[in-house]
Structure formats: C-alpha cells, structure tokens
C-alpha cells in the first residue's frame, strides 16, 4: 500500500505537498524493480522543470532509469543524503529517500493529472502480473 498523503505518476514517481513546497521521490515499487541503487543524479538547485520532463537519473548496478518530474516547478532543494548514500532510496523511498523539493509552478493543475494512491496501487498490481 502506498501512502495516501500524496499523488503518483505512471512512471512511478510520487509528489507530496508540504506547505508551499512539493517533495518528489520514487515509489517503493520502482525501487524494488531497480534493485540495489548505486547512484542518483539530480538537477541543480534553481533549475526549472516542466511536468514530465527529465528530473534526473537513477542507477542500479546494471541499469539506468530516467526520473521524470511529476509536477512542474523550480528546484529549491536536493536531498544531499541520497546523493551521498543512494541506498537510502532502497531503504525508505517514501520518506528519507526523497529526491528533490520544488517550488511548484501550477501545483493544482499538475496534481489533478496524477494518480491517487488507490489508482496507483491498482496500476502496479496490473504491472506486476
């Protein structure tokens, strides 16, 4: 079960509104698919991202996956702890393994296009089979 306090993209990213900011990470399903995560590449603070544009890359030993930004906005913080210890994304993808914080450009419209936790649970249920 994925937390219901946030929304999800079909590419397995999550976005959570906290005050004026939006926190972004990848889902537990995504980290399980990737296996041992060894490197995370994140944008610089200040970069502007459109919704669904490439946010960064995440690497396991033998695979590279793009991460897409589930919402648009400006990067205000990147998770240094994840850059230093990428295994945090494996250990706690919905919590301390978050990736970036954004100042959203149009949060409400972007969020309406994302999946609820129930919808996302259903999506991965189907993908797993």
């Amino acid at each position: 079960m994925n937390p219901s306090d946030r929304r999800y993209s079909k590419d397995h990213e999550w976005a959570q509104i906290v005050g004026e900011e939006v926190i972004i990470g990848i889902t537990n399903f995504a980290q399980e698919q990737l296996g041992d995560i060894v490197y995370v590449d994140l944008p610089e603070v200040g970069s502007n991202l459109d919704q669904s544009s490439k946010l960064g890359e995440i690497e396991s030993v033998k695979a590279v996956s793009d991460i897409f930004s589930p919402i648009g906005g400006a990067v205000i913080e990147v998770n240094q702890a994840v850059l230093d210890s990428p295994e945090l994304v494996n250990q706690d993808p919905s919590g301390s393994g978050w990736l970036v914080k954004l100042a959203p450009s149009d949060a409400s419209s972007d969020f309406s296009s994302l999946l609820t936790s129930d919808e996302y649970d259903e999506l991965i249920e189907n993908e797993a089979h």
Partner: peptide, 11 residues
C-alpha cells in the same frame, strides 16, 4: 558499468 554502451546504449 552504467556509463558503458552495453547498458546505456546510445547514451
């Protein structure tokens, strides 16, 4: 190895 062609292909 993720830098290399057998994983990252054209990138």
């Amino acid at each position: 190895q993720t830098r290399e062609q057998h994983i990252r292909r054209e990138r």
